[in-house]
């Protein structure tokens, strides 16, 4: 059961501005039935003032997609096109008193429908075919869109990128690409600071780094398969770990150890050897 706010429930059960406009000045359509949500936004625009005088939607999707559509149309009515374009997906979510994190992509869809409608009005090509290469094949999401949404919403994890854009939520084969985009966007300076040090580490610094690499780079991967690892001891370049969970007695334990060793060599020091307790 999703934890929807009362506002989402109210606007899902009693949507405002639903339907089509008879002679719309602009129409923006995003999403598809394959993806599981789609939004068609119709606008009436006053030629002189450039203001949106009416906005209607038709939405295929869950409660949050339908409520987000009402929020979008309510937020943009009376605004000029340029003012409307400044409405962010966060404002849509705020209007609803918040959305479950996993449903934030519904608010992003609203923002995109508006961009598509405005582009249509101005005779520009719709933004979804803007330059960029497709990263997520399942949902047809480009790197350009990913970078924009990541920056606008200050996203740092693949899970959040999926929550906001759906990218990576299908077959999952693009997850490494999303990781790389995140790394390139955010890690630029962080990585420079924590890059493998050429200087000699004190033992305490080394243990701290090993611990951090295990926490951030290794455990999340093992946990996906129900496994876990714990740092037991560090004896000069020898790192002793204990495998837990489904890693215990796993036939692939040797491969897992090699991978841990690889990560530690990469991030801490070339001479590290990993052994099991």
């Amino acid at each position: 059961m999703w934890d929807y706010t009362d506002k989402v429930k109210e606007l899902f059960l009693h949507p405002k501005n639903a339907g089509d406009l008879e002679n719309p000045d602009a129409v923006g359509e995003v999403g598809s039935i394959v993806c599981g949500d789609a939004l068609k936004l119709s606008l009436q625009v006053d030629k002189e003032s450039g203001k949106i005088t009416d906005a209607r939607f038709k939405t295929f999707g869950c409660a949050s997609a339908i409520a987000s559509s009402t929020a979008l149309t309510e937020l943009i009515k009376g605004k000029t096109l340029d003012e409307a374009l400044k409405v962010t997906n966060n404002e849509i979510a705020e209007y609803l008193g918040g959305l479950p994190r996993e449903k934030m992509h519904c608010s992003v869809m609203g923002q995109e429908a508006l961009e598509a409608a405005v582009a249509h009005y101005r005779g520009e090509k719709p933004p979804e075919v803007e330059e960029g290469t497709i990263v997520c094949q399942c949902y047809g999401i480009t790197d350009t869109k990913l970078k924009r949404v990541i920056k606008e919403n200050d996203l740092h994890t693949v899970d959040d990128v999926t929550n906001f854009t759906k990218a990576g939520g299908g077959c999952g084969s693009c997850i490494p690409d999303i990781e790389k985009i995140l790394k390139d966007l955010w890690d630029g300076k962080v990585a420079a600071e924590s890059a493998k040090p050429g200087r000699k580490l004190t033992n305490i610094q080394k243990i701290a780094m090993i611990q951090e690499v295990i926490e951030t780079e290794v455990r999340p991967l093992l946990e996906k398969d129900g496994g876990d690892v714990e740092l037991v001891d560090v004896d000069r370049s020898k790192v002793i770990v204990s495998l837990r969970g489904s890693c215990t007695g796993c036939l692939m334990a040797d491969v897992t150890l090699k991978n841990i060793e690889k990560k530690l060599k990469e991030h801490v020091s070339e001479d590290i050897i990993v052994e099991i307790e």
Binding site: W2, K9, L13, G36, D37, F60, A63, I66
Partner: peptide, 13 residues
């Protein structure tokens, strides 16, 4: 042409 979660939440009412 309609989405299942939306149907379920209406049924829930």
């Amino acid at each position: 042409y309609v989405e299942g979660e939306a149907i379920l939440l209406r049924l829930n009412e």
